[in-house]
Design a protein around this nucleic acid. Structure first.
Lengths: 150, 150
DNA sequence: TTTATTTCTTGACCTATATCAATGCATAGC
DNA sequence: GCTATGCATTGATATAGGTCAAGAAATAAA
C-alpha cells in the first residue's frame, strides 16, 4: 500500500505489463483503455475521486488495459489480493453497472448512450474532452458532434 | 435455499418483478434478457450447468431482466444476500469477463464476435438457436447468417 | 405421418455510423 | 504575443449492419 502522485499524461500500466495492482483515486482522474489492431483507442472506464481503478484480469496474467492520468492525480495503490480487502457490495454494484452498459451497447443509439452518460456522469463530462467521451461510448468524435448538435 | 425443477419455456423472473433471488444451475440452461422499447430482445447471458444466474441490480429495486429456461432445468435458488455466500474470486472473474465483453462490443466486428463466441462457448453453441446467439452478440439473425456463410 | 410453427437463409433496399478531409476554435508551450 | 498542437465541427462519401419479405429447411405438435 503506497501513496503516489502522478502527473497528467503519466502512464500507470501498459497492456502486457505485469498486473498486480489496483488504484484507489484520492484526487484527480484516471482512465483505462485498450487499443485495437487498427490502432484505435477504446476507453473502458474513467475513475475520478473515490473510485477504484483496476484491470480486471487475474494478477498472474499480463494486463489487458492501459491506465493513465487525465489530470494530475493522487492514488493509493494496493496489491491485487483476491482473498481480502474487497468489498463484496461494491463488486456487485460494479457488475450491475457493467450489465447495464452491455445492454446499452447492444440496444441503444449513439444519442441515447450520450444522454445516459450526461445524466449518470455529469461531473466527468466537464473534465474530459469530447473525443474521450465518444471513445467510452463506442462511437467516433464526428458522430458525437452530430448527436450533440441534433 | 430451495431446489426447483422448471420446464423449457418457463419464466423465473420478469422485468419489474421483485428481485431477491439468484439461481445456481444444476442441470439445463437458463438465459437472461431485456426487451428494448422497440420490443426487440437482447440476451445478456446464458447459464448452463454450474453457472450462477443473477440479475445484478440490488434486491430492493425491481428486476431489469427476464430470466427463463431454454431447456428443462434444475436450479438451486438462493437469496440475494450481499454480505455472505459470495465467492469474491468468482465475482472478480465475472467482472473480467464483462470487461472483455464491453471492449468487444465497442471494437469488434460481427464476425469477430461470432468467432470469439464459438471458441469461448462451444457447448452453448450446440444448445441454442442461431437467433439467440445473434441476440447475445448484439446483431440480427440475418447478419449472423451472412457472417457464418462468409 | 401430417400439419403447424419456428428457424434459417437470401435478395433487395435502407440507415446509422464510420471514414476522410478541411477548416475554425481553443489551449498549451515558448 | 506568437506559434504549435489539440480538439471540435462540418460536408461528402463509404460501409457495416439493419429491415423487410419470401421461400426453404428443420423442428415441434398433433
Amino acid at each position: 500500500m503506497e501513496r503516489l502522485e502522478i502527473k497528467k499524461g503519466q502512464i500507470l500500466q501498459r497492456k502486457g505489463d505485469t498486473n498486480t495492482k489496483v488504484y484507489q483515486v484520492e484526487s484527480g482522474l484516471l482512465r483505462s483503455y485498450s487499443i485495437d489492431e487498427k490502432g484505435k483507442e477504446h476507453i473502458f472506464m474513467f475513475a475520478p475521486e473515490d473510485w477504484l481503478m483496476a484491470d480486471n484480469v487475474p494478477a498472474d496474467l499480463p494486463a489487458d488495459l492501459f491506465i493513465d492520468a487525465l489530470e494530475d492525480t493522487v492514488v493509493i495503490t494496493g496489491a491485487k489480493d483476491f482473498d481480502k480487502g474487497h468489498d463484496t457490495v461494491k463488486l456487485i454494484k460494479r457488475i450491475g453497472a457493467l450489465q447495464k452498459r452491455v445492454i446499452m451497447l447492444m440496444s441503444a443509439s449513439a444519442a441515447e448512450r450520450y444522454e445516459h452518460f450526461l445524466k449518470t456522469y455529469p461531473q466527468i463530462t466537464q473534465r474530459v474532452p469530447q473525443r474521450m467521451i465518444a471513445s467510452y461510448l463506442g462511437i467516433t468524435p464526428e458522430t458525437l458532434s452530430r448527436v450533440r448538435k441534433a
